[in-house]
Each structure stands twice: as C-alpha cells, then as structure tokens.
Design a protein around this nucleic acid. Structure first.
Length: 904
RNA sequence: GGGAGCAUAGCUCAGCUGGUUCAGAGCAUCUGCCUUACAAGCAGAGGGUCACAGGUUCGAAUCCUGUUGCUCCCACCA
C-alpha cells in the first residue's frame, strides 16, 4: 500500500467532512435511544470565528462525538444570535458608508437593510465551524430572530406580562449614548480611569447679616477639625467635590451627613450652584460618606443613581441636562449642544475664571462603559420595560445549590450565588429596531394612555375592545411600542425554543431532547445567559435546561491579555487550521485547557497536535507496510505484547472514563495520547515489528489492526479527521461506514500484576539501553543479560531480548564478574562487558547509590524508631515502612558486595 | 469597599478523605543517535525548601493562622 510519508490534513479534512454531511451522520431524529443534547452558545450572526469559539466548540464536539459513540442519540443544535446592539451598529455603519442616515429611514426600510446585511454577512461563523470538524446537526440551524424563535419570544413576553412579572416604569437606567439605547446592568463594564476631582465653591445663599462660626469643630473622637464653612470677600461658602462638574447644571441640592459637625450650622440653609446661580437646599442624609472629599455632596437626581434615590426621598426637582446622544440640551443654557466631555472642560474653565474652583486633584475612579460600544455609560431616567427577578431567581439558585445542575469547575457556584442573591430587575427594552419588537400597544382612552400587551396587533385590538368597548373603533388607534427586547431575552429561551417548546410545549422533539445534557460556556456570560436559561427552564418547562455546565477558560495571548479584535492579538483560527490541521489545533488547545482555566494561547501548542497526527500517520504506514504471512506462527513476544497492550488499554480506558465523568477533558486526552504514543508506538509496535522486509504472522497482524482501530475510536472525539482517515485505511470498509458511529471501547477488568510485571521488564530494558548509551555501544551489538533475583519473572524475557537486543537472558544465583550492573527493584542485573570496565567510574556510581540508599534507610529507621509513629500510625503504613527497610537493607548488601567484587 | 479563588520544574497543569501514585505529567531544555514508520523522530538525562512565616500532628504540598504576590467577580463613595 502506498501511503504518503507525511500526513496532509487539508485534503483529508475536506474529504471526510463532506462525507459525514453527505451520509447525514450529524443529523438526529428522536428515536428509542437515550438522547444526548447540546445547544451551541449562539455566536453573533455577523461575527467571525475567534479562538474562544474554537475552544468552546471543540469541547462541545468532543462531548457530542463521544456520546454518539457511546450509543446515544447525539444532537448538537447550531445557530446564531441576532445580537441587537452589535448588529444594528454594523448596519448603521454600512448605511453611513453608503451615505444613508438611519434617521431618514422608516423602521421597515431599516429592517430590510438589516436583513439583507444578515443574509450577506451572517452565518460565516457557522461555515467556519465546519472547518473545525464540528458535528452539528446543520439541518436544525436556527437563528434567534427566525419565525419560531421570534414568536416564542413574543409569546413569553405576553405570558410574563400577564403573570405580572413584566412591567414598564421610569427608572434610572444605563444609557449608551453611542448606541442610543438603554442597556442592562450586566452590559456595563466598569473600567478604572484617571480622572480629576474638582472642588467647587457653593456660596451660602443668606442675607448679608448672617454670621457663621468658623472656628474648628470637634469630631466624634474629640479631635479638632476645620469647620466646613469657609469665608472670603464674597461671602460664606462650602466646598463640594465632584468628578463630573458639568452635571452642576442639573444640581438641585447639596447633601451633608446629619451628624457631621462641620456642617451642623447648615441645617435649613440654601447654597448657590456655582456658575449656574440656582439656589438649592442643603439636605442632610446618612448616605453621605463623611470621609470622602469635603463631606459635602452635590445632588443631581437626573444623572446619578444615588442622587436619584435621594431626590425621590427628599422630593427634589429633577433636571435632565443631556440629550440622548450625550450632548447638552436646552437646560444646559450656554452649553447647549456641546458634548458632555467638551462641556466639562469648558465649564471648568469658566468656573476657574469665576474663582469658583477651590482646587483640582488627580483621582482614579471606575467609569462604566458599554459592553458593546465601549461608550461611557450615562445614567439616565427613562421609561423602560423590566422583568421582576425575585422569585424566579430563588428557584434558579436552588437547583444549582442542590446540584441538580452541576458546575465544572464547582468554584463558579460562588459567583453564581452571589449574583442571584443580589439580583435586580432586568431591563429588557432596547431603543433599537433590530430585534423582537415589544408587543405592547398604547392607545388614548379619555385622555389617558392605556397599555395593551398582546402577541399581535389584531389580538391587542380585540383585547382593547373588550376592555374599553366602543371607545375603540379602529385598529389604527393602537400604537406599538417602538422598542425591541434585549437579545438575551431571546437567548434565554434557546434550549427550549430550538425545539419549539414554547409555542408547542407538548411536541415530541421538546419532550425527547429537553432537558439538554451539557452546557459549554465561557464564565463571562454566566449571568447574561446561563443563569437566565435556568430561569426560563424552570418557568416554562418546570425542568432545568441542562444538568452540567462546563466553563471554558478565557483564551489569552502570551502576555496574558484577553484575545480581542480591538487588540488584534488573536490569530486567525482558519489560518491555524490550514497550518496545523483541525485535529492539531483541537488537540493543542484541549491539552492545555482544563475546565475553568484560562488558556494562554501560543501557536506552538498546535505543533504538538500536528506532531501527534503525524505520529499516528506513521504508525499506520508501518503497519500497512507489512507483508502478512499465513504460515508463520506467532512468536511468544508477540502474544505477550498483544496481551499486555490490551491490559494496558483497559487500564487507560478506565482512567479516561473517570476523567470524562468529571469533565476533565485534557486529562482524558493526555492519557489517550500517552497510550497511543508511548505504549502503542514506542513499546508495542517495537516489540512486534518484524525484521526489515520480513513478514509478520497473521495472528499478530490482526490483533494489531484491531487494537489500532480501538485506539482510533478512543481518539476520534478529540481528533475526528485523522482517526477517520486511518480507520478507513486500516481495513476495507463497507460503503456507508464511519468511525463516527463505531462503539467506543469500554473498560474491562484488567490484570494489574501483569502490568506491573511488564513495567519491570521496561525498566530492565531501559537499564540495558543506558549501559549502551554510556558506553557508546551500537544498538546492533547484542549483549548478554544476567539477572539475580529470588523470585524471577520470566514472562517477558523474549520481549527484553528483542527490544534491548540481548542475545540471552539468564537467571543466576551468584554475582557476575566483569559486568556492569544495575538494579531493578530488588533484582540485580548484570551486563558482561567484553571491553575493560572503567573501574573507578563504576565504583563511583555504586558508592553514590550506596550513599543515597543508606540515607534513605536512615530516614526509614528514624520513623520506625519513633515509638509514637509505630503506635500512632495505622498498621498498614507501619508495614510499608518495614518493607522499605527490608528492601533498602538488601539493596545495600547487594551494592556492598558489588563494590567488594570490583575492589578484589 | 465586599466576596471568591489561586501560588507545585523554564511553561501549562495533576496531586481525592494528611501516610507507596508523594514530589508527578506533557511541553520546553540538555546529551547521544539520519537505527528502513516517523528528525513533526528515537534513546537517555538534568531540573522543584511544593510563595513566605508560624502552628496542629508520630507524620504536612495536603489541615489551621498570618504575611506577600497574582487573578476573577460584585458594589452607587460623589
């Protein structure tokens, strides 16, 4: 058989992926088998594959392929997410490039462009996943805005509204002035930034005759501290520290702590907002941190959540000074239309000129940025839709606490608990067009605005007629809410809506595939997505959506930075695949990424994968290059080797099964890797390998093929392509065959004593090789080996002979002269040398070993001499120490005898 | 500011209820080898006071306390 000397993944991968698709091997339909379901974390429809996706999807594919080979009906459902903000931003940009302003379009026109954009640029990422080998059921590809998913979302909204879990209200929300929409708390990223703390003078608004006592006051510990009230030629003033001087335009109070002696004279006073001239009240509230700044806080209820709360409490006026895009509105007076940051600069300049700034300090604080646009978030009062989280969160917490859903690694339970215990209502409306439009309809009835929530406008009209009778005559009186829903409000239904379980809760698919088995996700979306899916599952199926959550790590570059498009530090996964093969990249990533651990990515880890693919390939070349003889009898070393490798495989299988049970994928792969490379290639194949151009016996050959096939099955979930290729080359296969649907080998009982015996033989062989190495002897020169041991195990002598190139193995009761010796356990091995032995070198080696062993014995004796140890430690442990002592003593005796012999 | 986690070989990580899996693996490094499957390879070797300091114990990488250094999450100190 002619097999290429190097493995070329590109041809092979293309070939087999098409083959799998053509044979519909990824497709699943409900049947009598046990289902195994995974739903993909839907990537952004306009996104491209990055390393995070690679890792995440490789893990899913490993689990899915393994489940399939374990005889389960595996179904991995792919799809994409419409990603409102991100996609809408891209569409708006695209329009801008074409000279079209979004505001000049109607909603319908915009949506047409958006869908066009989606059709053109969407789904690239799913195509890329095929290159990775992902065994998704592509027939089931879904989109969070396709009809089934869209309708499901609408239905859920209406249902939750009817249950009283969804409400509309004017609240302080996180406003993204770039995307012009509200975002949820989870979408705000706080970043540390260097800013300034401005100390502003607020003059006290008081008749000129009023006198204040400016003497030092006494704090609670009895120390004298300066009074909070200052005086200059213009009058009395207090100093307020702020990081956002532009918001003074919206100031409606100044707040101090009621027990702050510095300000006790301020009760009931008013101060003048600097530069603005407005006179505002001094209020006193314990919210204020006396230690911060000057202990006096300006209150801007429209632009800060805390100020808003205080504003509510003290009935303060709310002055909103910003437009939606972050510029100043008419309340900003002369600063109208300036951007908020430009305004800040200008206002500081103006105040400085007016002598209203006491000082400016450098200050580091955390500023909220929009997760999607990176714009600085502006707290803003607006009417939004919210979902109540209280009760539903409790249930979602319970199922994780009681391990109905298990997290891998479990440490994420803490994070999850903390979030759910402090959860706030979820702002679900977004001021965008790309998304599910909120099915709320407004109409004017007798001067009031009434709200009707219904799945369609027609339904809303009917409901309106029922409620308001003849006051409603035309459907056109209804006006639908302009906003769409948060994208996560569709993704949270994903495991259910994929099987149409919202619209048709009793359909056979949802009943069969739900709940899914494993969720593979990055920890950074645990709140956005994971937690909310659990809530939706509880609410709509009364069952958790999955039983295990596998958290992948975050892929980082060599410098430890998160890989991101903006940093440009992410390699192109498709290029990597071209360079190392999909199998190589998969293997490289998996080996270095235990669950929950970040993956410091370096291209070199793919090399290991590529090298491994090639190693497998070369083993195939060796085996398929043999001529098989029907006459030859199986040599003893071959039957021993076959027996051993089967035992060994059983042992590793057990380990791998244990690893998978605990979701320790990298460990499972490492164990299989070693089985293939070390045990199979380096030991087994070397033992059975016939001499050059000599044939191999039929029995050994068949056994080898069989073992090779099973190894390929074990590796297939990790490296789907090379294993399929090799599996097909090993034997003639029927038309439809694929390794994908072979049975995964299962662990069976294995004989540990045999494995131990073989390990000893391996050590013996290594000993002989070492002698060869140190003496510079050719591997072709046969040596002799004498072993002195009380209980000889001769089973593997033929193997030793062959692999170590030893002409004879003989068991002796006396020491062998003129030989170099080494020990394997308690056995002494002698290799006679024809050439002169370097006496001094040998002596030194022996003496070193003697010193070490004596030291070892010493420490054992110390333990055994300790009465507390002998009495306190368990019998078993003491016995082990006694055995150590005996072994060490006999070893010392042997070494001493050898030294004596050398010196003789 | 609150909480959680981590620290073991140059790198990435195993190491379960303290004791033969106890100091390990892979990669990298070094030394020999172009030995007819494979130099993307083969055969060997070196390398760690288990972050630091105490404590508990007959016995600690493992349990406790403190220190230091990292990481993550949460939070409205302007």
């Amino acid at each position: 058989m002619n097999i290429a000397p190097k493995y070329d993944p590109s041809i092979v991968e293309e070939k087999w992926y098409s083959y799998w698709l053509e044979k519909k091997l990824f497709h699943s339909e409900p049947d009598t088998r046990i289902p195994y379901t995974v739903v993909i974390p839907p990537p952004n429809v306009t996104g491209v594959l990055h390393m995070g996706h690679m890792l995440n999807n490789t893990i899913q594919d490993v689990l899915v392929r393994r489940a399939r080979m374990m005889g389960k009906n595996a179904c991995w459902v792919p799809g994409t997410d419409h990603a409102s903000i991100a996609t809408e931003a891209k569409v708006v940009n695209m329009l801008k490039e074409r000279g079209i302003d979004k505001r000049s379009l109607t909603r319908d026109e915009f949506m047409k462009y958006a869908w066009e954009w989606k059709e053109e640029h969407g789904g690239i990422i799913l195509k890329q996943l095929r290159k990775l080998g992902a065994s998704c059921d592509w027939d089931r590809t879904a989109f969070t805005m396709d009809p089934i998913r869209y309708e499901s979302v609408i239905k859920v909204f209406v249902d939750l509204y009817d249950k009283g879990l969804i409400y509309r209200g004017v609240r302080m929300v996180n406003w993204d002035p770039k995307a012009l929409t509200a975002v949820s708390d989870e979408e705000v990223i706080y970043k540390e930034s260097q800013s300034k703390l401005y100390y502003l003078r607020y003059y006290i608004d008081t008749p000129a005759t009023t006198q204040f006592d400016l003497k030092d006051v006494t704090d609670s510990e009895g120390n004298a501290i300066p009074c909070g009230i200052k005086q200059n030629e213009k009058g009395y003033y207090v100093i307020v520290a702020t990081t956002r001087p532009e918001t003074i335009l919206g100031d409606t109070a100044v707040c101090v702590h009621p027990q702050d002696p510095r300000y006790s004279q301020m009760k009931g006073m008013k101060v003048v907002v600097p530069g603005v001239g407005r006179s505002v009240a001094i209020i006193m509230d314990e919210y204020v941190d006396r230690e911060f700044g000057t202990g006096a806080l300006k209150i801007t209820p429209a632009h800060d959540i805390n100020d808003y709360n205080l504003g509510m409490k003290y009935n303060l006026e709310t002055i909103d000074i910003f437009n939606d895009n972050g510029t100043l509105n008419e309340k900003g007076g002369k600063y109208k239309d300036m951007d908020r940051f430009a305004c800040r600069k200008q206002i500081v300049k103006d105040l400085e000129e007016l002598g209203l700034i006491e000082k400016i300090e450098d200050y580091t604080n955390k500023v909220g940025h929009s997760e999607r646009t990176d714009a600085i978030i502006e707290p803003k009062l607006s009417a939004q839709w919210f979902m109540k989280m209280g009760d539903i969160a409790k249930k979602a917490l319970e199922v994780v606490e009681d391990d109905t859903i298990q997290f891998h690694p479990a440490k994420f339970k803490n994070v999850y608990r903390h979030w759910l215990e402090n959860i706030k209502d979820w702002c679900i409306s977004r001021q965008l067009w790309w998304g599910q439009r909120i099915p709320a309809f407004y109409l004017e009835v007798e001067g009031r605005t009434e709200t009707i929530v219904a799945e369609t406008k027609e339904e809303a009209f009917q409901k309106a007629q029922q409620r308001f009778g003849n006051a409603i005559s035309s459907i056109d009186q209804l006006r639908q809410d302009e906003d769409v829903l948060d994208t996560w409000f569709s993704s949270w239904l994903w495991p259910i809506s994929l099987f149409d379980g919202i619209r048709n809760p009793d359909n056979p698919e949802i009943k069969y595939y739900y709940p899914t088995n494993d969720l593979i996700t990055a920890p950074d979306i645990i709140f956005f997505w994971g937690a909310r899916m659990i809530m939706a599952g509880e609410e709509y199926r009364d069952k958790v959506p999955f039983h295990h959550v596998y958290f992948t790590g975050i892929v980082r570059d060599k410098l430890g930075r998160k890989m991101s498009k903006s940093l440009g530090n992410s390699p192109d996964p498709i290029k990597l695949i071209e360079q190392y093969g999909a199998d190589g990249v998969r293997m490289g990533m998996l080996l270095t990424a235990p669950a929950g651990n970040d993956l410091p990515f370096d291209e070199s880890i793919c090399e290991q994968g590529r090298n491994f693919s090639n190693k497998i390939w070369n083993a195939l070349r060796l085996v398929k290059g043999w001529e098989v003889s029907e006459e030859l009898k199986q040599p003893e070393e071959c039957s021993q080797a076959v027996e051993w490798i089967e035992q060994r495989m059983a042992c590793v299988l057990e380990e791998v099964e244990r690893d998978f049970d605990q979701y320790r994928l990298s460990e499972a792969l490492m164990a299989t890797y070693k089985l293939m490379w070390d045990d199979f290639c380096s030991w087994y194949l070397e033992i059975i390998k016939p001499a050059y151009q000599a044939p191999i016996d039929r029995e050994t050959y068949e056994a080898t093929i069989r073992i090779f096939e099973r190894l390929m099955c074990m590796l297939h979930p990790f490296m789907p392509f090379v294993t399929e290729e090799v599996w097909h080359t090993l034997r003639e296969r029927p038309e439809e065959a694929s390794i994908m649907v072979q049975h995964m080998p299962m662990s069976v009982f294995f004989d540990q004593r045999m494995l131990d015996g073989f390990a000893k033989a391996q050590e013996t062989i290594a000993g002989v090789r070492n002698i060869r190495n140190s003496k510079g002897l050719s591997p072709k020169e046969a040596l002799e080996l004498y072993i002195r041991e009380s209980e000889a195990d001769t089973r593997f002598d033929n193997i030793i002979k062959k692999v170590a190139n030893v002409s004879k193995v003989e068991y002796v009761s006396e020491k062998v002269e003129g030989a170099i010796s080494f020990m394997v356990g308690t056995a002494e091995c002698f290799v006679p040398m024809s050439q002169n032995i370097d006496k001094d070198a040998e002596l030194k080696k022996l003496q070193d070993e003697l010193a070490y062993t004596e030291g070892f014995l010493n420490s054992v004796m110390k333990k055994l001499g300790n009465e507390k140890f002998v009495n306190g430690a368990p019998e078993k442990v003491v016995n082990i120490e006694r055995q150590k002592k005996a072994d060490a003593e006999s070893k010392i005796a042997a070494i001493k005898a050898q030294i004596a012999m050398l010196n003789a």
